[in-house]
Design a protein around this nucleic acid. Structure first.
Length: 271
DNA sequence: ATGGTCGGCAACCGA
C-alpha cells in the first residue's frame, strides 16, 4: 500500500483549523504531523479532526508555546514522548503503526519541533541558540530515536535548520543567520547520520535545485522575493529510503489568507 | 545596516 505522511508547522492549530481542514480534504494524508500547535491537550479540536477522518490522535501540547501532534486515519499500537535538555517543552512525539494498521513489520513515526534558536548565533551570548545546539546533540545521542538496523521508521518535523547550500535562497547571505550557520548544519547532519537517516526530500530533489518549506512573515512579497528556507524535513530509515515515490511541498498554502509561515510537506511511501 | 510580521495572551516573549 501507499502510505502518505504530512509534516506541517501550523503556528496555532486553533487559529488555522479551517486551513488544515481544507488541506486535509484535498490531500487526505494517512498521517498528519503538526508542530507549534500552541494548544493544551484539553483544548485541542479533537472532534473536528475526527469528523475529518482522523480518529487516532497522539497529543503532546502545552499552553502558548510549542506543541506537537500525530493525527492518523490508521490506528497505531502506542505512542511515546521524549524530553530534551531537561525541559518540559513539547517538542517530540512518536507513534508506532503495526498490525492494527495492517503492517506485519511495524513503522515508527517521529514528529519533532527543534528550537528555533533566537537571533544571535553565539551560544555564549544567546541561551536560545545554546539550547538549540544542545537539542541537536541530544537528538544525535538519543538511542530511543535511532532506528534499529532493518527497522522501518520515518522522522519528520520542523527541524529549524536548512542544512544544505540550496536549502536557502542565498548561502552567502545566510551563512551567519540562525538556521543556516555551519555549526547548526553540522549538528543536524550528525543527528541524521547517527541514526542512519536518509534525507528523502533531497533524494528526490537533489542539489542544486532550490527547495524551501518556509518563507518569513516579514517579507511583504514573499512569492516574488522567494527568500525561503528548507526548515521542514522528512527522513526515513534505510529500509524505506528507496520506497519514497513522491514528496510534495504545497507552496500554495503560504499564499492562503492568514497563512502559517511554513507549508505542508507530504511524502508518499510504498510500504 | 536595519527593520520588517506573526500568535499567544494580555507584558512582551518566542519565532
Amino acid at each position: 500500500m501507499k502510505l502518505t505522511v504530512t509534516t506541517w508547522n501550523i503556528n496555532s492549530v486553533r487559529l488555522r483549523i479551517d486551513l488544515v481542514a481544507k488541506f486535509i480534504k484535498s490531500a487526505r494524508p494517512d498521517i498528519l504531523c503538526l508542530q507549534e500547535t500552541k494548544c493544551p491537550d484539553d483544548k485541542f479540536p479533537l472532534k473536528r479532526f475526527k469528523r475529518l477522518g482522523y480518529e487516532h490522535v497522539a497529543l503532546n501540547g502545552q499552553k502558548g508555546y510549542h506543541g506537537v501532534v500525530v493525527l492518523s486515519r490508521l490506528p497505531f499500537e502506542r505512542f511515546d514522548v521524549q524530553l530534551f535538555c531537561g525541559k518540559s517543552d513539547c517538542r517530540h512525539i512518536s507513534a508506532v503503526f503495526g498490525e492494527r494498521a495492517g503492517f506485519r513489520d511495524p513503522i515508527t513515526v517521529h514528529n519533532f519541533y527543534v528550537p528555533a534558536g533566537g537571533d544571535l548565533p553565539d551560544p555564549d551570548l544567546n541561551p536560545k541558540f545554546a539550547h538549540k545546539l544542545a537539542f541537536l546533540d541530544e537528538m544525535r545521542d538519543c538511542a530511543v530515536i535511532r532506528p534499529q538496523k532493518s527497522e522501518r521508521a520515518i522522522l519528520v518535523g520542523d527541524l529549524n535548520v536548512a542544512p544544505l547550500e540550496h536549502d536557502v535562497w542565498s548561502h552567502k547571505q545566510m551563512v551567519r543567520v540562525v538556521s543556516h550557520t555551519p555549526i547548526e548544519c553540522e549538528k543536524l547532519t550528525m543527528a541524521r547520520k547517527s541514526g542512519d537517516w536518509v534525507d528523502s526530500m533531497r533524494e528526490l530533489t537533489p542539489e542544486p535545485a532550490k527547495l524551501y518549506t518556509w518563507w518569513s512573515y516579514r517579507s511583504p512579497d514573499w512569492a516574488t522575493a522567494d527568500r525561503g528556507r528548507r526548515l521542514d524535513h522528512i527522513w526515513t530509515s534505510p529500509m524505506l529510503a528507496d520506497r519514497v515515490s513522491s514528496i510534495v511541498v504545497a507552496r500554495n498554502y503560504r499564499g492562503a489568507a492568514r497563512p502559517s509561515d511554513h507549508v505542508p510537506v507530504t511524502a508518499a511511501i510504498e510500504v
